[in-house]
Amino acid sequence: MTSFRYQDEYTTPPARQITPTTIERFEHVFEVDPSLMTDNVAQQVFPNWDTKRIVAARWDHLAWIHTHFADSVISGEELLRSLDD
């Protein structure tokens, strides 16, 4: 069971080239193209759950910053629509 999960976590989904210098493995999670990280930096081996955890933690952090400074956030999309009303 454990070894199955381990393998699962360390097998990344196939990469899709997004721009000449970036790839995407998980939806909306962009990574620097590994071919640009060969000369000067060593890449860390990362389980998939950790990638997802970091992304989720980022969203938590952004939400926290909003509430830290103001009680609510006004939507620009709604204001833009109201310009045409």
């Binding site: 909003h66 400074f69 103001a70 009680d71 609510s72 956030v73 006004i74 620009g76 204001l79």
Partner: peptide, 9 residues
């Protein structure tokens, strides 16, 4: 007063 609202565009 802590702001009731924030707007950023």
């Amino acid at each position: 007063p802590k702001a009731e609202a924030e707007f950023s565009a």
